[in-house]
Simulated assay, not measured.
Amino acid sequence: MTVTELTDEFSVLLLEESSTHADLFEMWLEGVQTKRAARPRDIFRVFDSTVAVACLSQSVLGEDEPDIRRFILNRNPYCQLILIASCSSPDILYEQHYDATIVRPTSREEFQTAVEKRLTYGMYSALLDEFYSLNAELVSLERAGDSEVDLDPDALQKRLQRVRKPLNQLTAAIDHADTKALLQSLNLHRKYLTEPAQAIDSEPASKYHPKACPNCKLPWGVDHRNDLGKGFTSIGAYVWRCSRCHDITHGSSPSDRRVARR
């Protein structure tokens, strides 16, 4: 694989119930750090910030699929998701939710190509985000002065240089088609993390807050099972901030509400 020299700080997660298949996948990913999970609950134990790609076996996911996907993307929205689909499935379950799909049986070349591409995307996104964050911290440090901010400028500069080299290499390796595919992937993740739940009537309306945001109509009091949470945040007595549009609603009745955008 051509990206193995850049993977010191990144890894690939394999959710695979067959130890034989997991061993084979690890052999095909020689030079890349891997983390293994045989059951969905194992992911909650082994997943960490280094995981840039998660290869998830459809046969293992089952009813835990939404929880696993949400868990991964909430902790790393840049993590690329690859579905390893069962060959016996007439319709590839969940495929529209994934960045790439590998259908069993798969060859070494097919598996390596898919993982390498998604590993490039996952590393590039993570490094680019860290690069901008480090620069923002350095700017804040320069403006505030050493005595006002608890940051080590030397450590920040060293980390910035460590990030810059692989980022430049990945940038050179990414073409227009890759950029388009990566943006589609990030939009897919963002949509999932901010998409309202469909079962809007699963909980009764509360007398303490509106049933939905008066501005964007996002249902409130429903567990959206993503970044939207319950749809709002209480910021005072009869004052709520919408999780999606961030408008602030005041008052306990429609006639006593004011909406202020922030």
Rank of each mutant, 00 (worst) to 15 (best):
R108P: 04
H209D: 05
P204C: 00
E109V: 07
L141F: 02
L138Y: 01
A205P: 08
K165H: 15
R164V: 06
R143H: 10
L228K: 02
A172W: 09
S147D: 14
S125N: 07
L228G: 00
F111M: 07
T106I: 11
Q184M: 11
S125R: 03
L151I: 08
K211P: 09
L186Q: 10
N187P: 07
I200C: 10
A173F: 01
F131M: 05
V115P: 01
A172V: 14
V163W: 02
A237V: 11
M123V: 04
K230R: 14
D152C: 08
K207C: 14
T113S: 11
L167F: 03
N187Q: 13
S133Y: 12
K191R: 13
D227F: 10
P204Y: 01
Y132S: 11
K207I: 11
A155F: 07
E137W: 14
R108D: 05
S185A: 06
D223T: 12
T113Q: 11
D152V: 11
T179D: 08
P204E: 01
G221E: 09
S107F: 01
A181H: 03
Y208P: 09
S206P: 02
P204G: 00
K217F: 13
S202F: 08
L188V: 05
P219K: 06
N187C: 10
V115D: 04
K211T: 13
L141Y: 04
L193V: 04
S202V: 13
K165V: 12
L141S: 04
Q198K: 15
D223H: 12
G229E: 08
P105N: 04
L186V: 07
A177W: 08
A172D: 13
L156H: 00
V222P: 01
L138V: 10
W220P: 02
T171V: 07
W220Q: 05
A114L: 11
R143Y: 06
D129P: 12
E148I: 06
E109F: 15
N215T: 14
E203P: 08
S185V: 01
M123S: 06
E148K: 09
H189Q: 06
Y121Q: 00
P105T: 04
V115R: 02
D154I: 09
I174S: 03
P166K: 01
D146M: 14
R190Y: 15
R164C: 09
D152Y: 04
Y121A: 00
A136R: 10
A173L: 01
L186D: 04
E109S: 15
S202K: 09
D150V: 07
R118S: 06
L160Q: 06
E148G: 05
T171L: 11
D227L: 14
R108N: 07
L193Q: 02
R162F: 11
G145D: 03
